[in-house]
């Protein structure tokens, strides 16, 4: 079955293995600075956490690729968008006290978010002739590199990771938004119950380097505060029901050459998604 309980395999210690893999159908609500979006998606997902090396290492991942479509309410009539969206990350980490339930843990993660959401009849280069769709439509490309340090609890059926992390996040330029590079720090937690639950919660804060506008004598630095959470309930038949929640808010410190500084804030972005997964095949 796709969602499996712990199994013995060849390890002296039974391997922890909690995973989902299959097709997903979902719906999302997004309140973004550029408007409110209601979207549906259909695709596939693989996510999970496994132990290796006699419980001395953990590999966790989440890869979701989906066709996505829906409406962005940033003008009248609402803007129909269709395309693809993917979120992918993978983390490999070490449990230094592999034989203990509780162990110090360090890990490294690479991740990305890629989206290409088009409006039928509008070329990709013409998004600057309609209301901004930044963050919801057009091209979305974000890369992340993260280092974790914390503790791991691992017993036969449960895993808990509590980490602090440092992260570099690179956001490619959007139609009306320049490229941004955030240096971030945060706290994360992940809880797995084999064959039953995958739950994650992250909080992150970071800043960009200062951007200078020499023509107008302005220096601008963006700060991003974000929270994300996800929860998947895995059923006995391998199907799963999931929910993700993302909240971020960008604020800018804008300093003018004469010394006055303004603290501005974008509207927050809230994204809530519910999805249902069906395993495409069962593991033996």
């Amino acid at each position: 079955m796709c969602a499996s309980a712990a199994s013995a395999d060849d390890d002296p210690q039974p391997r922890f293995d909690n995973r989902i893999q299959g097709a997903v159908v979902g719906a999302s609500f997004t309140s973004a600075p550029v408007g409110i979006a209601l979207m549906g998606e259909l695709g596939g997902e693989s996510a999970g956490l496994r132990s290796f090396a006699d419980r001395g290492a953990l590999f966790s991942w989440d890869v979701r690729l989906a066709a996505k479509g829906g409406y962005l309410g940033n003008q009248h009539p609402f803007l129909f968008l269709i395309g693809m969206h993917s979120i992918a990350w993978a983390e490999y980490g070490f449990r230094f006290a592999s034989q203990s339930v509780w162990s110090p843990y360090v890990g490294g993660r690479v991740g990305s978010e890629l989206g290409l959401m088009a409006h039928p009849g509008l070329s990709g280069s013409a998004f600057d002739t309609i209301n901004s769709v930044d963050g919801v439509g057009g091209v979305i490309a974000v890369g992340r590199l993260r280092l974790d340090a914390g503790v791991s609890m691992l017993d036969r059926t449960r895993s808990l990771l509590l980490v602090a992390f440092a992260q570099e996040e690179l956001q490619a330029p959007r139609t009306n938004t320049p490229s941004l590079a955030f240096t971030q720090g945060g706290l994360g937690a992940r809880f797995d119950v084999a064959g039953s639950i995958i739950a994650e919660l992250d909080g992150v804060w970071g800043v960009t380097p200062t951007r200078s506008d020499a023509l107008r004598g302005i220096e601008d630095r963006t700060t991003r505060l974000g929270f994300s959470g996800s929860f998947r309930k895995i059923f006995g038949n391998g199907m799963w029901l999931g929910a993700t929640l993302l909240w971020t808010r960008d604020t800018d410190t804008v300093a003018y050459a004469n010394g006055l500084t303004y603290g501005t804030a974008n509207p927050a972005m809230l994204d809530v998604e519910l999805f249902f997964g069906v395993p495409l095949w069962r593991r033996k």
């Binding site: 409110i36 003008q75 309609i130 901004s132 139609t175 938004t177 974008n266």
Partner: peptide, 12 residues
């Protein structure tokens, strides 16, 4: 970035 009147505002 604002083209049509809606629920969108210039970045602050």
């Amino acid at each position: 970035g604002v083209v049509d009147t809606g629920i969108q505002y210039p970045p602050p």
